[in-house]
Design a protein around this nucleic acid. Sequence first.
DNA 1: TCAAAATGTAAGTAATTGCTTACTATAATT
DNA 2: AATTATAGTAAGCAATTACTTACATTTTGA
Lengths: 198, 198
Amino acid sequence: MVRTSTDKKILESALKLISEKGYLGTTTKDIAREAGITEVTLFRHFGSKERLFEEVLKCYTFLPKLKEVISEIEGDSINYENTLKKIGMRFFETLKERKSFIRILSSEMNVYPDKTREVFSKFIDETNKVLSGYFKSQQNAGNLRKFSPEIAARGFLGMLFCYFNVEEIVKGKSISHQKIEMIIKEFVEIFVNGTLKD
Amino acid sequence: MVRTSTDKKILESALKLISEKGYLGTTTKDIAREAGITEVTLFRHFGSKERLFEEVLKCYTFLPKLKEVISEIEGDSINYENTLKKIGMRFFETLKERKSFIRILSSEMNVYPDKTREVFSKFIDETNKVLSGYFKSQQNAGNLRKFSPEIAARGFLGMLFCYFNVEEIVKGKSISHQKIEMIIKEFVEIFVNGTLKD
DNA sequence: TCAAAATGTAAGTAATTGCTTACTATAATT
DNA sequence: AATTATAGTAAGCAATTACTTACATTTTGA
């Protein structure tokens, strides 16, 4: 679907307002106002509020590109600890970029369960697959002790996700790059010490 | 406030329905029907929908009693690893007991930000305080390496919280006691290995 | 048993919301 | 310049929702 500039304005406004006020708490009038158009134009472009919301979910869906991080790193012979740091950093940056969308996924799970659960589950499962694959390959190379790579990946990414969620979404802060690095350093240290072979 | 049995029925029904459909997605008619009363009775008891919701937030607010776990354990000379397992277990059990309420906290943060953020932040901060205090005392006793107890506590509880959130809330499953134990065992192993002194 | 309290019945209000319609004006394209 | 496409104006509709009112019935407690 090729997007006109009006489409884009509407989608952006919808993303912003729905992430702030919820789907049911945001009126089509609000969205139109925010986009600088009339309400009737909104309906001309998207047909209904629900269709607009579906397009928002489709348009802003994302997957963190951890695969690419691992590829880059495999070419660079960086060690395990720094790899985890880079993965953590990339993951966190992605979360920050997509903050509004993540807010919507959390809060609209009841109103629009099918798509939000699908997107959220896919996000979790795919990112975990990549990281657990990496843990496995490091185990196979004899670098790591025996543990469940899938559960460890869930743990590692879960720590980061939860930290992000609490600070940025619950507390409404914006974490500085420095602070993120510090947090990731601490988490990675625990993970490295906790997963390396003796 | 002393609760009549009708009050309780209304509060329980509101908790259930709001956790399933959201605050705005749940009508006072729905709640009345679920409670087996008429809508006018609901207003007699609570005055408004908003007031009812406030009472739900007040009534179902909780803090996991990790302090008690630590007290019990300190009397029992249980080791660090088993302590973390018991803490993890108690925390997870609490999350499961309060699943509906936690769903509401996540999803209604935009509609009712002040109280939900307050409750959620308090929950995070208090539980972290208790666990980080325990980490500190173990460091002071010379058992653990140097790391930030606050950040480690955030990490540990964050892993559990995120795992719970994804499985029970996003994916809508109910995790078996066995499965929880296994997950906690894995997470604790990483943490124990990651925080013990060499 | 009786009076007070609690709840139900039935109807209604005002406001809000998503959405539509018809006509007009503006912008873009040929 | 003329035509087509896009957007605006103004008004309105039907449905829904939180809430209210007045009267009747049932339940509870003394």
